[in-house]
Simulated scan of single mutants.
Amino acid sequence: MAKIACIFPGQGSQYVGMGKELFATSWGKEVFETGQRVLGEEFIQILLEGPEEELKKTANTQPAILLTSVAAWRGLQEAGIRPDYFAGHSLGEYSAYVAAGSISLEDALKIVRRRGELMQAAVPEGKGAMAAVLGLENVKVEEACRKAREEGNWVVGAANYNSPGQVVISGESSGVQKACHYAKDLGAKRAMPLAVSGPFHSPLMEKAAKDLRPVLEAVNWREPSAPVISNIDAEEVKERRSIVESLVRQVSGAVLWEQSIRYLGEQGVDTFIELGPGKVLSGLVKKILPSVTLMNAEDLSSLEKLLAYLKESR
């Protein structure tokens, strides 16, 4: 029988006004009010009205995407949809745990706000960078980073294995720049800097990871209702004791997204539902598993289309 995985986007998918329609629904209103209570009126105004520069700040982006993603999930939940697996890209892994019932929305919002603050403060502005390397095999991207480390003793390495031919690298600005140079020498089609506020998923985030641990440990985690695929090792998390460790490691470790999606395909998942702003993950999944069905929900029209499809197909 066909299997469904719900997947949740990470930083970079945000836009001003996202989730507005969902927050106005009966189920979304509760989500919205929780966000308002936990994070305050100023945060809600930034989410719905901007300015965009404020929304782009990591400490605002992370809870904003989480809130929107959970509102979309609640729409599926109201319709009685029960997926077989959950997964999220970086920040999206927290949305996955909320959907799986492992953590309350209130606790998750507090954690990701603090996570965003710690990640934003971990490295002085301008000292770190990220870049997307396109059209190059994973092993050659890793070779480019290794050459850069050997040349200048810089911190640089793979941060996101997004899809075949798309790997994001992260680390010290000079190291990332040099690794991009080597990547082009090794045959990359493009190697372009990303507009981010820090070198996420690199060893430069180790202090942020260390400081996040007690925040995570203070929460009452529960076993997920269905397996959540961990970013850090592309394996199923079924027990609550594994959750904190995987989320701590995720801050400074690489996101194994391509590997996670391939694993889900091996388990028989043939329908992927992206819940939250944008369709970035749907595009990546299509490159990894071209034959699967892809749906998304980020507003009322896309949610209604998704629910109609699921009603007909199941």
Rank of each mutant, 00 (worst) to 15 (best):
A191L: 10
N138R: 14
M205D: 02
E143T: 07
S301G: 00
E53G: 05
I229D: 02
M130A: 08
I46G: 02
E172I: 02
N296M: 05
I261W: 01
G92S: 12
S69P: 09
A218F: 08
L118S: 04
M192S: 11
A226M: 06
S13V: 06
K147E: 03
P164T: 00
P214D: 10
G35Q: 00
L136H: 12
A226V: 05
L48C: 08
V176E: 05
V123Y: 07
V244A: 09
L284I: 00
V167F: 07
P63I: 06
G92R: 00
V228G: 11
I46L: 08
E217N: 09
G128Y: 05
R114Y: 09
L109W: 07
G35M: 03
E150W: 00
M205V: 07
E93M: 05
E142T: 06
M192L: 15
I4A: 05
L256C: 06
E142V: 13
A209M: 06
P214C: 01
Q62T: 07
A2I: 01
R74D: 01
D211G: 07
Y182F: 15
L289V: 02
E21C: 07
C145L: 10
M18I: 02
S197E: 12
G50E: 11
L134H: 01
M192H: 04
V123C: 13
S95Y: 02
R37S: 12
Q120C: 14
G19E: 10
F272I: 01
I81K: 05
R222C: 14
S301N: 13
P227E: 11
D233Q: 03
E42A: 14
E49Q: 12
R240G: 13
R240Q: 15
E304W: 02
M1F: 11
N138L: 15
Y161Q: 04
Q14R: 03
V285P: 04
P51F: 14
L47E: 00
T293N: 12
S260I: 01
E274A: 10
S291Q: 14
G198I: 04
I46M: 09
A108H: 07
R249E: 12
C6T: 09
E78Y: 06
R37C: 01
L48W: 00
K238G: 11
L194A: 04
T271A: 03
T68L: 12
G35Y: 03
P193Y: 09
E239P: 00
A218Y: 00
P214S: 05
E117S: 13
K311S: 15
F8N: 03
K3N: 12
G157S: 13
S291N: 13
S95H: 03
S301E: 15
Y161M: 07
A191R: 07
R114W: 04
P83F: 08
Q120A: 15
G40Q: 08
G152T: 06
K56C: 10
E236H: 06
E298I: 03
G157W: 02
A158D: 03
K20R: 15
V269L: 12
E239K: 11
E304H: 10
M295W: 04
C6Q: 02
E33N: 11
I7H: 05
